[in-house]
Design a protein around this nucleic acid. Structure first.
Lengths: 225, 225
DNA sequence: ATTACTAGGGAGCGAGTAT
DNA sequence: TATACTCGCTCCCTAGTAA
C-alpha cells in the first residue's frame, strides 16, 4: 500500500486511541469514521497488519487492533514532518554540531573554477574551506535527505590534467541567523545524510569562535524560482 | 483524486513554499521530492489544478504553481487535525458556549425508558435536562462531525401510545474537568454539528453557575472497547 | 450481528514517446 | 532541456455474498 495512504490511515487509527492500547475496531464502525466501505476497512487493516503497522486480533468475531512500534515510529515521524511544514513552509531549519572533516573542503573550495561560479551564482566569494555540521536528530537527517532531492543552484564540475571535479549543488543558507552562506552537496560526497557542508564568505570557525561539537543553526530558504 | 492523497501532496507542495507565492516546479524536480515519476507529477498537478487546489502556469515551458485559497484551507484544516491527533489521541476536546435550547431536553431526559438505560449503561442517573453547548470554532464542528460517526453507547429507543422515541447514542464526557457526564446524539436530532447536547448527574447550570454564552469545556475519552 | 472473500471497475502508476 | 500524451499494469475501491 502507498505510504501516503498508510500514514493517513494510521493517523486516523491513532486518533481513536490505537496507539496506546488494543481498541475494539469493528470494520463497519471504522468504515464510517474513515469514510470508506466496510470491505475496504477489512482490506486496509489486513494490509497494515501484513506490513507490521498494526496488531490485529479477533475477539468474539470482532476485530481489535493496536498500532505496532513500527507504526508508531512512522506516524510520529509524519506528525513531526507535518508540524514542521506548518512552522517552516519554504524553508529547512537544521541544528547540528561543528565537526572536523577530512580537510578536503579547503582543497575543493580553493579551485578557481568552483570559486568563480560560486561568486557569480551565490553572490559571494567563499572562504576556502567548508564547515562540517554533524546532524544528530533523526528528523534533521530526514530533512537533509529531502533537501538533497531538490535541484538548488548548479555549480558545474570540470576536469584538470590530474583529475575530475564533479558537479556541486548549492542552497543559500543563513548560519546562526547572522551570516549568509550556503549548504553544498558534492555530486560524489563522502559524507552521508548526517552531515551538512557549509560555506560562507567568512571563516565561520573564526567569526563565531567555534570549536568542535559547538551547536550551530543552519536555515535554508528555498528559492524555487 | 482521493482526498487523502490530495492532502499529502498539497502538504509537500506547501513545504516547498507554494502556499505563499508562485514557485518554479519542474516536474522532474518534484518527481524526486515527492518520490513519484515525472509523469505522475504531471498528472497530479493537473488534477490538483482542475479541482482548484493549485494555480498552474507555464513560463518558458517550465511549470510554476501556487496553492489556491481552497487548497490552503484544506491543508490548514489537515494540519490542525494532525496536531490535534498528536495532542489528543483517544480523546475529543471541545470548547463551546452555553446555549438555551428548545427545552425538549428535559422532556426526553425524564422518560423512564431512557433514564433506566442511561443509568445502567453510563453509570449515573442523569439530571432531567440537557445542557446545550454551541460550538463556534470550525475545528470543533468538524470534530463533532467525526465523533458522530462513531457508535458510542447505544441507548435504545421505544414507543409509547402517543409517539416514537428514537435511539440515542452516548459518549462519556468530562465537563469542565470536574463532572463525569456524557454527550448524547438523538437519532433524529434537531441540531446541526455546531451543537453538543450534554447530560450529567448534576444540574450543570447550577453546579458551575452557568449563564448563556459562558464558556464550557467538554472532553470525550473514547472507549473503543 | 460480525469478517473477509470474490469480481468488476476505475483510479493511480511508470515507461515510452510526441511535442 | 521542458510538459504531458497513450498504454498497459497494478493498486484501490465497492457491491455482493459466504461463513
Amino acid at each position: 500500500m502507498n505510504i501516503r495512504l498508510i500514514r493517513s490511515y494510521l493517523l486516523d487509527l491513532y486518533k481513536l486511541g490505537a496507539g496506546e492500547k488494543m481498541i475494539k475496531a469493528p470494520t463497519t464502525e471504522l468504515a464510517n469514521f474513515l469514510g470508506v466501505s466496510q470491505q475496504s476497512v477489512s482490506r486496509i487493516l489486513n494490509k497494515l497488519h501484513t506490513q507490521d503497522y498494526i496488531y490485529k486480533e479477533l475477539r468474539n468475531r470482532v476485530l481489535w487492533i493496536r498500532i505496532t512500534e513500527k507504526g508508531l515510529m512512522e506516524i510520529e515521524d509524519y506528525i513531526k514532518y507535518v508540524n514542521d511544514v506548518y512552522v517552516n513552509p519554504g524553508r529547512f531549519v537544521f541544528e547540528g554540531y561543528v565537526s572536523t572533516g577530512l580537510g578536503e573542503g579547503a582543497y575543493y573550495m580553493s579551485r578557481k573554477q568552483y570559486v568563480t561560479q560560486f561568486e557569480s551564482i551565490l553572490g559571494f566569494k567563499p572562504y576556502p574551506g567548508t564547515l562540517n555540521v554533524r546532524l544528530k536528530n533523526p528528523f534533521y537527517i530526514y530533512q537533509n535527505r529531502l533537501l538533497r532531492r531538490l535541484n538548488g543552484y548548479k555549480i558545474k564540475g570540470f576536469r584538470t590534467k590530474e583529475r575530475v571535479f564533479g558537479d556541486v549543488k548549492a542552497f543559500k543558507a543563513i548560519i546562526n541567523d547572522r551570516i549568509d552562506g550556503a549548504v553544498i552537496y558534492a555530486e560524489r560526497s563522502i559524507y552521508g545524510f548526517d552531515m551538512l557542508e557549509v560555506i560562507a564568505p567568512e571563516y565561520l570557525r573564526g567569526f563565531f569562535k567555534l570549536k568542535d561539537d559547538d551547536k550551530i543553526k543552519v536555515v535554508i530558504y528555498l528559492n524555487m524560482e
